[in-house]
Simulated scan of single mutants.
Amino acid sequence: MVISIVDNGGWPVQTKQRRISGAAAAAACGILALVTGCSSTPVTGKHDAKPTASRASDPVSPGPSPANLKPVQGQRLRHYLLTTNDLGPGYTQTVTPDDKKAADPHRYDDIGVSGCPALEELSKHSDEVQFATKTSAGFTFGADSTLGEELHSDTPSKLSAGLRRLVHAQTSCSTYTMTSGSTPVTVTVHKDAAPGPGPDAYAYTTTLNGPGRASVLKTAAVRHGNVLVMLVGAPALVDGHIEAAVAKLPAS
């Protein structure tokens, strides 16, 4: 995860830090991935309301019990992503973090975190929160507000346990320091009301304060059967579209 909200030529970091990567790096920023690094301008007031997305459905046939659902693969998983048609006027699709990482597999290597033991511990075991399949989409709204979506699929038990661990790590510290290279960013986190019923629905807001600029991001995550959806971006955009994102998930 690359921090893009600050650029002051690099400040020295006085605290000891642990380098993190992969899912741990993403969790440190408050999400599994972002559209344009950790940059988002808060949206105030109204924006064009989203159309209500109908739940995607698969052909009805006898299948495994919910507890034994297998991961959704490839293009079938992509079918459940939001599109600009779902979001409404004013949205433009962008290059996703997956595309950027494919071009530069080491783009998250310079991320560090200090002052949050749970995130530092997660960095040692990031392979334990990797899911079987993943796809993502990114959007901008207006001049510079972003909305990112990730879908992950695995068995329900693995998704549930991994999501709990990621959210616990991210929300266990109200304040910590993250760095990109040598530039320090103070991160503050607070939990929000869950975006839906059930034990695997979470939301929290992350504020990142760097030299000369602050940025506010909201994350909402919901597991439905063998698919996990996460939205992150400007709080108003996340709040406005999480229901539509969940509605597109396959019926379990």
Score class of each variant (00 low, 15 high):
Ser65Arg: 15
Ile111Leu: 13
Arg76Lys: 15
Ser57Tyr: 10
His79Thr: 08
Ala103Trp: 05
Pro105Gln: 07
Thr52Ala: 11
Thr44Phe: 01
Gln75Trp: 09
Thr52Gly: 10
Asp58Ala: 15
Tyr108His: 08
Pro105Asn: 03
Pro89Gln: 06
Ala56Met: 13
Gly115Phe: 07
Pro59Asp: 09
Thr96Glu: 00
Gly45Glu: 04
Asp109Pro: 04
Asp110Cys: 05
Lys101Gln: 13
Asp99Phe: 06
Gln75Lys: 15
His79Met: 08
Asp110Lys: 11
Pro62Val: 10
Lys70Asn: 05
Val113Thr: 05
Tyr80Ile: 03
Asp109His: 01
Ala53Ser: 13
Lys100Thr: 05
Ser57Pro: 03
Gln93Ser: 12
Val72Ile: 13
Cys116Ser: 09
Thr96Phe: 07
Gly115Gln: 00
Pro66Trp: 09
Ile111Trp: 03
Asp109Thr: 09
Asp58Phe: 15
Tyr91Thr: 06
Val72Glu: 02
Pro51Cys: 01
Val95Ile: 13
Val60Glu: 14
Lys70Phe: 05
Gly63Phe: 07
His106Ala: 10
Ala49Gln: 10
Arg107Met: 02
Ala103Tyr: 06
Gly115Trp: 06
Pro51Ile: 06
Pro105Cys: 03
Lys100Ala: 07
Gly45Arg: 02
Arg76Phe: 02
Asp58Arg: 15
Val95Ala: 11
Asp99Gln: 11
Gln93Lys: 14
Pro51Ala: 11
His47Ala: 07
Ala102Ile: 07
Ala56Gln: 12
Thr44Asn: 00
Pro89Asp: 03
Gly45Trp: 01
Lys70Thr: 13
Ala103Val: 04
His106Met: 07
Asp99Ser: 06
Asp109Asn: 11
Leu69Glu: 06
Thr92Gly: 08
Asp104Asn: 12
Asn85Asp: 13
Lys101Cys: 04
Ala103Thr: 07
Val72Leu: 11
Pro71Thr: 05
Lys46Pro: 03
Leu87Asp: 02
Ala103Cys: 00
Ala53His: 06
Pro62Phe: 05
Asp48Cys: 03
His47Phe: 12
Val60Leu: 15
Lys50Tyr: 11
Gln93Tyr: 00
Val60Asp: 12
Tyr80Pro: 03
Ser114Gly: 15
Tyr80Val: 09
Tyr91Pro: 04
Pro89Val: 02
Lys100Phe: 01
Asp58Asn: 14
Leu81Trp: 02
Val72His: 01
Ile111Gln: 07
Asp110Phe: 03
Leu82Pro: 01
Asp110Ile: 05
Tyr108Lys: 08
Tyr80Glu: 02
Tyr80Met: 08
Tyr108Met: 11
Pro97Glu: 06
Asp104Val: 00
His106Arg: 13
Lys100Gln: 12
Val72Cys: 09
Pro62Trp: 04
Arg55Glu: 00
Thr92His: 13
Tyr91Leu: 03
Asp104Ser: 06
Val95His: 01
Pro59Ala: 08
Tyr91His: 08
